[in-house]
């Protein structure tokens, strides 16, 4: 039972990690928490499903199409809302509320035009299962795990190995200085939003297949839990987001089976509160030296 729950928790956690990275990237360049990320995750899952049901063509193609649309939504959030706020030098709080407004819009859009109930989701990566000891591992879990692993490697290559990543890190260090160095700050921020929306879309589709269902409210709780994961790891830190995601996935799984499944969604926050009290900057966050 323990091993089974651990495996389930790691599967869940790996997806949390993927979404949490989105939060961390956006936080890195803009210092705001993107509350719409959870809804964008849900939207991604729905888009794949809707396209697939509508056109009945290759699932992967629909998936790719959904990701493109999702990335575009992420782009719009920045281009048509947050960028204007930056130009007006509005406070971060206003940016935050704007992302919340987007979350409301996306959720209600999905509810009105896609479905207001729980919808079954086809699992296209179910090729049977095998057992390790007493635990059963499904191919879905393995594939999710592998996809996340590949994406994490890809992301760390993008952030630490490419020019775009370098620009991202420069912007998160000091946006003004980056601008003076000729970096297209707005471009980098837009890129970051697109990346995080695509990651969220991939997660949304995979979770849909994993649970074989999806509904329009699912974005909210996942959004909050992954936000907790990002904070737990240390906001802005990529290894932190991954670790935070895994920890929260595992704790949630174990807590739900050993303590109480009713409190499933509370465990993430319980862990968060405990960790933050002892490590105020999260697991991997750096302590800020006050510059005076």
């Amino acid at each position: 039972m323990f091993l089974q729950q651990l495996i389930n928790g790691l599967t869940l956690g790996s997806i949390y990690a993927l979404i949490a990275i989105g939060y961390s990237l956006v936080f890195g360049v803009l210092q705001i928490v993107n509350f719409a990320n959870g809804s964008i995750y849900m939207l991604g899952g729905f888009l794949t499903l809707v396209l697939y049901n509508k056109f009945r063509i290759n699932f992967l193609l629909c998936f790719a199409l959904a990701l493109i649309i999702n990335g575009f939504v992420g782009f719009c959030l920045d281009r048509f809302a947050l960028r204007h706020l930056r130009q007006k030098k509005a406070t971060k709080l206003v940016g935050l509320i704007t992302t919340m407004g987007f979350a409301t819009v996306i959720e209600n859009f999905v509810m009105l035009f896609f479905s207001n109930a729980t919808v079954p989701y086809p699992n296209k990566i179910d090729f049977g299962s095998f057992s390790i000891g007493s635990a059963v591992v499904s191919s879905t879990q393995v594939i999710i795990f592998l996809v996340v692993l590949v994406l994490l490697l890809l992301m760390s290559w993008v952030v630490y190995g490419t020019k775009v990543g370098k620009a991202m890190r420069a912007v998160s260090q000091n946006a003004d200085a980056a601008k003076l160095m000729g970096i297209d700050v707005n471009g980098v921020i837009a890129m970051t939003f697109i990346l995080s929306a695509v990651l969220a879309g991939i997660s949304g589709t995979m979770v849909g297949m994993y649970y074989q269902m999806i509904d329009f409210t699912s974005g909210f709780s996942i959004g909050m839990k992954t936000m907790a994961a990002a904070v737990l790891g240390g906001v802005g830190s990529l290894p932190g987001a991954v670790t935070g995601g895994l920890i929260i996935g595992v704790v949630e799984s174990l807590g739900a089976s050993y303590i109480s499944s009713a409190y499933r969604n509370a465990f993430a926050f319980a862990v968060l509160i405990i960790v933050i009290l002892f490590l105020p900057n999260g697991l991997f966050g750096k302590e800020k030296v006050t510059k005076v």
Partner: peptide, 9 residues
């Protein structure tokens, strides 16, 4: 933000 997220939790 750490504080904000904590209140959310």
């Amino acid at each position: 933000y750490y504080m904000t997220i904590l209140t959310l939790g």
